[in-house]
Design a protein around this nucleic acid. Structure first.
Length: 875
RNA sequence: GCGAGGGUAGCCAAGCGGCCAACGGCGGCGGACUCAAGAUCCGCUCGUGUAGACGUUCGUGGGUUCGACUCCCUCCCCUCGCACCA
C-alpha cells in the first residue's frame, strides 16, 4: 500500500459503491427536497472546463446540503436538439441522432468520471420523443390559451444555418447584425412564422425582477434592459381620409412643438398613403433598401397632411428610416426644438422649428441646438407657464388624444426553425380550416428519418408532410418547421420532478411541493435567452393552471469564466486544459478553491499544484495515522487547543459552504490541516484528538473532493459513507471563532515582533499575563453604553469593577475615544483558557518556557494588559 | 449616449464604518530537513524601530464622521448590457 493518493485508482471503487448504495437517488418519501440544479449541457461531445466548474459548484453544494440532513434533488440531463448536430452529421456522414447519442454517452461517462453525484434515475434527453412530445403538448396548451401566434413577419435569417433566429440570437457584429452561432451576417426575410407571445408577460417579467432577491444584480439589470420598459404617452393624430396615427413619446409636454409626423418605412399605413403614386412608391422603396445605420436623416414627404390634435394645425407626414419600425408605434411626432434626431431631420428637410419649452434658469433662446431638458411651457395654449413635469401629468389626464402608454423593447419569441433536429411543431395547415393543432392523442409528432439535403429534411418526406386535417378530414399539409431548442430548456427543470410520467409533462403535486428550484447555477451568457424564457414559461404554465409558482428559480448563481492566458478557455481558441489533465478530482478541487463561483479566474499550473498538494498531504497523514503513527491515550494540555481549532473550523467552514464560498471553505481546511500537521510534529498526537481532526477534514472536504473524502473516511472515520455522513458537530459551542484565532495570532505576532526588534537571541521564558477581570467589564460598558453616557462613573459604580478607583478611571477614560470601535474580545475566562491552550505554539516556535497567568492588580505586567491584549514579558 | 458592475501591496484576490498595514493563494527572500535536488515544514515579504510602537498606504480629487479600504459627490480607467429607442 502506498501513501500516494492516486485518484484514478480509487474513483472507480467509490463510484461503484455510491452506485450500489443509490447514494444520490432522491428518496421516495422526500417531501420538500432542496433542488440544486446546474444548467444542463448541450451535447457537443466533450465536457469542457466551464462545465466542470458549473457542476463542481452544484455538486459541492448538493453534497453539503445532504450532509446537513436535507433530501437533495440533483439531476442531470441533455440539451440534445440543435443545429450543431446536423452540421456534425454532414461532416461525418452520419445522422444527428446517432451523433447526439454518441455525444451523450461520452459526456455521461465524463461526468461520472468526475464523480458528480447525480440522481441518474431522473436523466432526461430532450431529443427523446418521450420528452419532446411534451414540448408539443405544451405548445398546444399555449395555443389554446392564445399565447401562440402564426404571423407574417420580417425575421432574422441566417443564410449559413438556413434558418430564422430569435431576436435574442442575433448579436452585434463589427459590420451589422450576425448569427450568434456562426457569426454570418443576418439577413431580413418576410416569412410566416410561429411565435410565443412572451410580450403578454412583459410587464410581469419586468416587475418580477424587483423581487428576485436571490438573483445577481447584473442578470436582473440585463433582463431589464432587454425587456426595455418605457413609460410615456400615445398621442393620436388624425390623417384626413386615412384614419389615425398613434405615436409614442416620453415627452408629451412637447406636443405643441410638433411640426411634422414621421412614419417608419415599414409602418402599416405607408403603402396606403402612397398608393397610386409611382414616384412616391419608388422613393419609399429606395428608403426601405437602406440599412438603418446608413440612412441618416433621409425621408420622403408623402404629401399627406395630419391634423394636430391640440392646435388643429396641419403637419406634413414623412416616411423616414430613422424611425424604427419596432420601437414604440413605429411613428413619431417630430419636435425639432426639443429632440436631437428630430432637429437633425428638420434641418435636412427645411421643416419649421417651434420652441415650446424654455429652460427655467436662463431664458436665452436656443437657435442651433435642441433643448432636451425640463423647463416651462411656452406657446402651448392653455399650458403656457406650466412646468414640463407637471404638464406631462396634466396632458395625460386632461386630453383624450394623449393617453398614458408603456412600451417594451421585448418582442414576441419567434420559435419556428427551418431545421430538422428539433421538435416538430404540432400543427397542420388545411385549405379549409386554416391551421389546426394536432390532437393530443396523436402526439408526439415524431421526426421522420434524417436525409441529407440542402433544405429542411422534413420537407423531403411526403409521408410526413401529407396528412389529413384533424377537423374536416380533408387533405392537409403538416407544418415542417421545428421549435427553437430554447423551448426544450424552458421547462426541463419540471420534467426532472417526474421524468417518466406518461400522462403529463410533470407531476403537479411534486411541483407544488418542490418548486421553485432552490439554487440554479450556470453561465450568465444565458441572461436574456434561457433565463428569460424559463421565467416566461413558468408564468404561462401557472396561468394554464399547471403550476403554482410564478418564478422558477429562488437563487441564481452565475458562475464566472475560467481563463487561460487572460482569455476565456474555449475550444475555438484552442486554449483548453482538459478536465482530466491534472486528475479529475484535483481539477474540481482547484476550480472550487480558486475563486468565488461568480468570479472569473486564471488557470495556472502553480495554483493547481496547491490543490494537488493538499490532497496528497491529507492522504499521507491519514495513511500514516492508520499504519505507523504512534499515538498516546492520555490527554495533555495542548490537545484542548487542537480540539478547539477543530470546532472553530467546523463552524467557519459550514458558514462558507452556506454562502457558496467554497474557496474560503478550502482555506479553512488548509488551515486546520496545518494545525494538525504541527500538532503531530510537536508531540506524539493523542489518538482521539488526531483522529477527530482527520475525520473532520475528510467530512469538510468531501463535498469538494468526494473520492478523497470517502477514502479518508474509510481510513479514519465512522462506518458508512461520508456522502451519507452528518455534517460534523463541534464538541462545544463556538460563538466567535475568528476572535479567538485573532487573539492567538496577534499574541504570537507580538512575541515575534518583540523578539525580533529587541534582538533577543534565545528566549528562555515567555510570560503572558492577561488583564484583570474588571477590565473586561469596562470594555463591555464602553461598547454597549449610549454614545454620550458617562462610562467612567458607570464603571466606578459597577459591582463587577472591583479595583482601585484611580486605576479604573484612568483605564476607562483612556478608552473613551474608541468606544464601540474597540476590538471584539472574548470574555476574561475564555481569553485565559484560549491562551493557556495555545501555549504550546509559542513553546514550539521559540523553544522557551511559556506561562499564562492572571495576576492581581498592582502587578507590573497586569497593569499593561488589556482585554484581547495580554502583557508579555520575555527573558 | 444611457445603465450596471469593478479599480486593494510584485501578481491573483478577501474585506465593504473602528477587529486593517489590511485574510488567503501564487511568486520572491531567509531558515529547518537533506550528499544534493524535489517535496515538506517554519518565518519574512510598504518604511523606520533595542518590548508588542510609529509613519505612509487600498484608482483621482473633495465631503460626511471622534474615526473611511469601507458611506456621499467629482473626475479618470476597465468589463458587461442597451442604444438613430422617440
Amino acid at each position: 500500500m502506498t501513501s500516494y493518493y492516486d485518484h484514478a485508482q480509487v474513483q472507480e471503487f467509490w463510484q461503484y459503491v455510491w452506485d450500489r448504495e443509490d447514494a444520490y437517488v432522491l428518496p421516495e418519501a422526500a417531501e420538500d427536497p432542496t433542488y440544486v440544479l446546474g444548467m444542463f449541457p448541450y451535447t457537443s461531445g466533450t465536457l469542457h472546463m466551464g462545465h466542470v466548474r458549473n457542476y463542481a459548484i452544484t455538486d459541492a453544494y448538493a453534497r453539503y446540503r445532504r450532509m446537513c440532513g436535507d433530501d437533495v434533488l440533483h439531476p442531470m440531463g441533455w440539451d440534445a436538439f440543435g443545429l450543431p448536430a446536423e452540421n456534425a452529421a454532414f461532416e461525418r456522414n452520419t445522422d444527428p441522432e446517432s451523433w447526439t447519442r454518441a455525444c451523450i454517452k461520452r459526456m455521461r461517462e465524463e461526468l461520472q468520471d468526475m464523480g458528480f453525484g447525480y440522481d441518474w434515475s431522473r436523466e432526461i434527453t430532450t431529443c427523446d420523443p418521450s420528452y419532446y412530445r411534451w414540448n408539443q403538448w405544451l405548445f398546444t396548451r399555449l395555443y389554446e390559451e392564445g399565447l401562440v401566434e402564426y404571423k407574417s413577419a420580417t425575421v432574422n435569417w441566417c443564410p449559413d444555418c438556413e434558418t430564422v433566429l430569435a431576436d435574442a440570437q442575433v448579436e452585434d457584429g463589427s459590420d451589422g447584425p450576425v448569427c450568434w452561432r456562426c457569426e454570418s451576417p443576418v439577413e431580413r426575410r418576410e416569412l410566416d412564422q410561429w411565435f410565443f407571445t412572451i410580450t403578454d408577460y412583459a410587464e410581469e417579467l419586468y416587475d418580477g425582477l424587483e423581487d428576485l432577491a436571490g438573483w445577481p444584480d447584473g442578470v436582473r439589470e440585463i433582463q431589464r434592459n432587454w425587456i426595455g420598459r418605457k413609460e410615456g404617452a400615445r398621442v393620436t393624430f388624425t390623417l384626413p381620409d386615412h384614419g389615425e396615427v398613434g405615436v409614442f413619446t416620453t415627452r408629451p409636454d412637447t406636443v405643441y412643438g410638433a411640426t411634422y409626423l414621421a412614419l417608419s418605412p415599414g409602418h402599416e399605413l405607408v403603402d396606403e398613403l402612397v398608393a397610386g403614386d409611382d414616384d412616391l412608391t419608388a422613393g419609399i422603396e429606395a428608403v426601405r433598401e437602406l440599412r438603418p445605420g446608413e440612412a441618416g436623416f433621409a425621408g420622403v414627404d408623402t404629401g399627406v397632411r395630419a391634423r394636430h390634435p391640440l392646435t388643429d394645425g396641419e403637419l406634413p407626414v414623412y416616411v423616414a428610416p430613422y424611425v424604427l419600425e419596432d420601437v414604440g408605434t413605429g411613428a413619431v411626432m417630430g419636435v425639432p426644438a426639443h429632440n436631437e434626431r428630430d432637429h437633425a431631420f428638420a434641418g435636412e428637410h427645411d421643416l419649421p422649428i417651434r420652441s415650446v419649452i424654455e429652460p427655467q434658469e436662463n431664458t436665452s433662446p436656443l437657435p442651433e441646438a435642441p433643448y432636451t431638458g425640463e423647463g416651462v411651457l411656452v406657446d402651448s395654449g392653455e399650458y403656457d407657464g406650466v412646468g414640463s413635469t407637471v404638464a406631462r401629468e396634466r396632458l395625460l389626464e386632461e386630453l383624450e388624444a394623449i393617453e398614458p402608454e408603456t412600451t417594451y423593447r421585448l418582442r414576441d419569441w419567434l420559435i419556428s426553425r427551418q431545421r430538422y433536429w428539433g421538435t416538430p411543431i404540432p400543427m397542420v395547415h388545411c385549405g379549409e380550416c386554416g391551421h389546426v393543432p394536432v390532437p393530443e392523442e396523436d402526439l408526439p409528432v415524431e421526426l421522420p428519418e434524417f436525409v441529407h439535403t440542402t433544405g429542411n429534411p422534413l420537407e423531403e418526406h411526403d409521408s410526413f408532410t401529407e396528412t389529413t386535417c384533424p377537423e374536416c378530414g380533408g387533405p392537409a399539409r403538416r407544418e415542417t418547421d421545428t421549435m427553437d431548442t430554447f423551448v426544450d430548456s424552458s421547462w426541463y427543470f419540471l420534467r426532472y420532478l417526474s421524468p417518466d410520467l406518461a400522462e403529463a409533462p410533470f407531476d403537479a403535486d411534486a411541483a407544488r411541493e418542490w418548486l421553485p428550484v432552490d439554487v440554479y447555477v450556470g453561465g450568465d451568457e444565458h441572461a436574456t435567452l434561457h433565463l428569460l424564457y424559463v421565467r416566461f414559461f413558468t408564468k404561462a404554465l401557472a396561468d394554464l393552471g399547471l403550476l403554482e409558482v410564478r418564478e422558477p428559480v429562488e437563487r441564481l448563481v452565475s458562475q464566472g469564466t475560467v481563463l487561460y492566458d487572460g482569455t476565456k478557455m474555449s475550444t475555438s481558441d484552442g486554449n483548453v486544459v482538459s478536465p482530466q489533465e491534472y486528475g479529475a478530482e484535483t481539477t474540481r478541487l482547484f476550480v472550487l478553491s480558486a475563486a468565488h463561483p461568480e468570479q472569473d479566474f486564471e488557470w495556472t499550473a502553480n495554483d493547481v499544484g496547491a490543490a494537488y498538494d493538499l490532497q496528497q498531504t491529507l492522504y499521507g497523514m491519514a495513511t500514516e495515522f492508520v499504519q505507523s503513527l504512534s499515538v498516546r491515550a492520555k490527554r495533555r494540555d495542548h490537545d484542548a487547543y487542537v480540539d478547539r481549532e477543530i470546532d472553530r473550523t467546523i463552524v467557519t467552514a459550514g458558514e462558507e459552504y452556506e454562502r457558496f464560498r467554497f474557496h474560503r471553505a478550502f482555506s479553512e481546511i488548509q488551515r486546520l490541516l496545518g494545525v494538525l500537521r504541527r500538532y503531530r510534529e510537536y508531540d506524539t498526537p493523542h489518538e482521539g484528538v488526531y483522529r477527530r481532526g482527520l475525520r473532520t477534514l475528510s467530512a469538510l472536504l468531501a463535498p469538494m473532493a468526494p473520492h478523497l473524502g470517502e477514502e479518508l473516511w474509510n481510513k479514519v472515520g465512522d462506518d458508512g459513507l461520508v456522502v451519507e455522513a452528518d455534517w460534523p458537530d463541534p464538541l462545544e459551542a463556538v460563538d466567535d471563532p475568528r476572535v479567538e484565532r485573532r487573539l492567538v495570532e496577534t499574541t504570537r505576532e507580538d512575541v515575534r515582533d518583540i523578539v525580533d526588534v529587541v534582538d533577543i537571541d534565545d528566549p528562555e521564558r515567555i510570560e503572558l499575563v492577561v488583564a484583570e477581570e474588571w477590565k473586561y467589564r469596562v470594555y463591555d460598558l464602553l461598547k454597549t453604553s449610549e454614545p454620550d453616557a458617562d462610562v467612567v462613573s458607570m464603571a466606578l459604580e459597577d459591582d463587577a469593577v472591583d479595583a482601585d478607583e484611580e486605576a479604573v478611571a484612568d483605564f476607562t477614560a483612556g478608552l473613551l475615544d474608541r468606544r464601540e470601535g474597540l476590538d471584539p474580545v472574548v470574555d476574561a475566562d475564555r481569553e485565559l483558557e484560549t491562551l493557556e491552550r495555545a501555549r504550546w505554539l509559542l513553546e514550539d516556535e521559540f523553544g522557551a518556557a511559556v506561562t499564562v497567568s492572571r495576576r492581581p492588580t498592582g502587578d507590573d505586567l497586569t497593569g499593561k494588559a488589556r482585554p484581547g491584549k495580554p502583557a508579555i514579558h520575555i527573558s
